[in-house]
Write a protein that binds this DNA or RNA. Structure first.
Lengths: 193, 193
DNA sequence: ATTATCTATAGATCTATAGATAATGC
DNA sequence: ATTATCTATAGATCTATAGATAATGC
């Protein structure tokens, strides 16, 4: 009860981090203030000294979730390997069963698609930015040899990645889910590498 | 107040139909009993003579929404034209601005992805079935000439369609949204036709 | 003295139910 | 008489606030 400013900052950070995971698992409506604070080890009353409102927290949690995913992808990218090899690793990581199964730490562009469609500009603006940087990143990694329109290929690749991961998660049948990941990954690599 | 059985059947049908639209627009959590009944022109009290619970309605609404989309796609398919032409029309229709902008009557496989991931088996089972039939439909339309693995190509095509439509909706920027639709459609057609 | 967190609760929203009302249909 | 719908409300859940409590930090 009643601690230092440093401790408040740590509490604040833990609330956002937990909310960034929860929002990917349960959606924008799935974050409940009392439950969130309990998970962090606090009571719900203190919440409003950290955030002006639930909406404000959700907006910040979405931004954080988008950045989390972005830096995870960039981590794969930072390498001296040739672009084609990096692109292959990116596709494999994005469409892996591990990525599919760990919603809370996963790419928010996939985890939050449907939610963002129904969300306000406060969540759509950072989402749009993140989509833009993924497109640029993919376009840079795609070889310009065959067809010169790298940007179009980058867009199509992002659509495939997001669609395949989302479908693999939604589907009830483990065999079909795995098949969706495998087929989409191998088709993407066949087209781009 | 208090009418015939025929009228009850019509009320029942209108409730499901309205819920099937609302669920695509607002998600599984976005359907509120009182609001729904008001839209249909009834009061909320009568709802429980039509459905055992809200969950029961949502499950039925999702099934209906999936079938709606399925029959819309089949309508494009029923034609004497060659498979390649039908496939082209399907891609153009799915990735059209009209489809993007009319959530309530759109394909539920795209509109409900994130929601279904968080939903119970009651919604995931019919969703999985619908994904299965789309894959089969696409596989049949894909020419077996170049590469014999039509099923893998069907899966990859569905992923692209769902991902592109979802991203085009989520994004804040109209120009980027159009670009996503155009680029994904032309890449898909370049690969498959 | 200040402030981070806690306890308690008001107020709004939503699902579900009970009993009343006004039609239908044998 | 039966029943489809309506009115009224109980009960649960959730956001937000007010005031109390127990630490920090000058």
């Amino acid at each position: 009860m009643g601690h230092s400013q440093k401790e408040k900052d740590r509490s604040h950070e833990r609330i956002i981090q937990e909310a960034a995971a929860k929002v990917r698992e349960a959606g924008l409506d799935g974050v409940a203030v009392a439950e969130l604070m309990q998970t962090v080890g606090l009571t719900h009353g203190g919440f409003y000294r950290h955030f002006e409102s639930r909406d404000e927290l959700v907006a910040q949690a979405v931004e954080r979730a988008l950045k989390d995913g972005g830096s995870a992808v960039l981590a794969v990218t930072h390498s001296e390997a040739p672009a084609a090899e990096i692109l292959g690793r990116l596709i494999d990581a994005y469409l892996s069963e591990a990525h599919r199964d760990n919603l809370g730490t996963s790419c928010a562009v996939s985890a939050l698609v449907s939610d963002v469609v129904r969300g306000g500009d406060r969540v759509r603006a950072p989402y749009t930015d993140q989509v833009g940087s993924y497109i640029e990143l993919l376009a840079k990694l795609i070889a310009p040899t065959r067809n010169k329109d790298r940007r179009a290929k980058g867009i199509a690749a992002l659509s495939s990645l997001v669609g395949a991961l989302s479908l693999a998660r939604a589907v009830n049948d483990p065999a079909l889910s795995r098949e969706i990941l495998k087929a989409s990954a191998s088709e993407l690599k066949r087209q781009l590498l």
